[in-house]
Design a binder for these strands. Structure first.
Lengths: 336, 336
DNA sequence: CTGAAAGCGCTTACAG
DNA sequence: CTGAAAGCGCTTACAG
């Protein structure tokens, strides 16, 4: 592995000049050429660690995720990776396995790698570590929800508005007995429940508490919640599942009960773009546009890493979901 | 950020002794305690770059993937991440966007980060870079197929056997008009076609070339291939889709034509574990067990990174797929 | 077991 | 524009 030493030997120039060349400073045309030529010949590549050691910057961003089990996270990674690498920044991935027992050292792990910043979909267990990290001046960008008490930028969607879209669609097609499957321990999903309630109220549709179901964020949870809804005296005509796995579970329960979508039950899902286009009929769905979330988070981070950029207080970027029409909502308006 | 200097000041011990302590050498009980105590008090954390610079090792492995668009890659990442971090090794992710134009510097990018090794699902475009890297002594582990001409360990599944499982299942239930959708430019899928042909031959089922369809590796490709199969004079009674996206496309085409699985067409998929359990009926499927692939690749890499481990020539680990039974294969044996 | 010293490969003021 | 020198925070023979 060639070093500046070798280039000095080959070119007769000093280490300082060589360093200047590689860092974009002004070097005489002639010297630049001779360094370039020697570098190519020796397959020279600057040593990242020596550089990091001096500059105290790593051009590496840590990406901290709760797990790697859904394609929500895959899209996040994909969007961030692209944006960062286009800017010469690499990405260290760390998963804090929030479902597991015990303390996790994910944040500590990233800190020890001296990442310049952390982009994260924060899990509860990561919060204390993130707080410390941010307090020490490391830029943190939260995706999906603003990490409580962390001095961090955030990129979120307007969850109330997103949920309202689902209700609008259902109400527009004549539904009034609308069930909702949510979860009251997850802030984003709580916001979706608020959106549902507000939109129902705005439409003068009474909120029936037995139609508001809570479920763990899993396929099995959604399946059980749907089963409970199906046992109600007066069944809902439609269900809005505010989380992707839960939606899958609800569809499973419907299939198991021999009920057809949309004939026997209308369905609106949330954040299941791939699946929604594979089913028959395709599903109506609120789309989070995860790619946009990811890119926005990377952009926020790149701005924080830019020493030229003015220091601004933490900011939250709010993106908007879109509604994708499918064939899973029956039109039950009375013909008049 | 505290350094050895600070610890020396606090403890009165030399840098060498402090270093020894942090690297597991023998240090007097009393001194160890005083270092430990000072380190905790100062929140000391060894500087990774100084360490890397000296040791010329980074405890970081690059993971190079063709893209991040399928959950095959997600499972790969997930499996590797877990195994590596359990061993204190971090993971730098790099995607070479093989579908894009132009040269990609993915391997160069990883090399400049001086990763200790690279685990990769090799895309064709990455091969030259991987060859150079491996030739320079960086351990490379290939997943899914043995990267041509690269001095690398590999973890693959037995694709012929995997495809044979699908044919076995179909033949056992009486199918003889069996279609196959594959792709003759992808080595693994070519192997699956061989498995299909061999198993058909073993069962004395004639291979009908019009039932062997080729398709790009995409949903749309699978859809078109299935449509072509449906136009045949004598339709197949079953189709085996040897790649997940293609399977999704084929199912879409069937739904669009108003055909039901398995009544009108039996279906066996490949590597779609999540989807196969969401559909009604659940799908029969060959499961690659991607998690096992990932873990095996990480284990191979960890062995290569272990300076104690004996140097052995590149080895290929062959894993076996499993068949998951569903309800998408009709039993058409004649009642006798 | 402990310590003094050299050095890993860069960057950065500071002179010239 | 160029160069000599110091130093980033560690580890590693080498003595003792």
């Amino acid at each position: 592995m060639a070093t500046y030493h070798d280039l000095r030997r080959e070119t007769g120039l000093s280490l300082a000049t060589i360093s200047k060349y590689f860092n974009g400073g002004n070097v005489l045309e002639e010297n630049a050429r001779s360094i370039e030529e020697a570098a190519k010949r020796l397959e020279f590549r600057p040593n990242t660690f020596a550089r990091n050691l001096r500059t105290r910057r790593t051009r590496t961003v840590g990406v901290l995720l709760p797990d790697l089990t859904s394609d929500f996270y895959l899209s996040i990674l994909s969007g961030i990776e692209r944006r960062l690498r286009d800017n010469g920044v690499s990405m260290l991935i760390c998963v804090d396995h929030h479902e597991d027992e015990g303390v996790d050292d994910a944040v500590e792990f990233l800190a020890s790698r001296m990442v310049d910043g952390v982009i994260t979909v924060p899990s509860t267990r990561a919060l204390p570590g993130l707080r410390t990290l941010a307090a020490q001046g490391t830029p943190v960008v939260a995706i999906d929800w603003p990490a409580d008490g962390v001095e961090a930028d955030a990129v979120v969607i307007d969850n109330e508005e997103a949920a309202a879209m689902a209700i609008q669609r259902l109400a527009d097609r004549g539904h009034r007995r609308i069930a909702f499957i949510g979860n009251d321990r997850v802030p984003t999903i709580r916001a979706r429940e608020r959106g549902v309630r507000n939109q129902l109220a705005a439409r003068r549709i009474p909120v029936r508490e037995e139609y508001i179901a809570r479920s763990p964020m899993s396929v099995e949870g959604g399946r059980l919640a749907m089963q409970r809804l199906l046992l109600l005296e007066e069944r809902p005509t439609a269900v809005f599942c505010s989380m992707n796995l839960v939606g899958v579970g609800a569809l499973t329960a419907l299939a198991e009960s021999g009920l057809r979508v949309p004939d026997d039950m209308s369905f609106v899902g949330f954040d299941m773009p791939l699946l929604a286009r594979m089913t028959d009929p395709p599903l109506d769905m609120v789309n989070q546009r995860v790619g946009d979330l990811a890119r926005a988070s990377a952009d926020l981070m790149l701005r924080r890493l830019d020493p030229e950029a003015p220091a601004v207080p933490p900011q939250t970027v709010v993106l908007h979901a879109e509604f994708l029409h499918g064939g899973s909502v029956a039109d039950i308006r009375r013909q008049s």
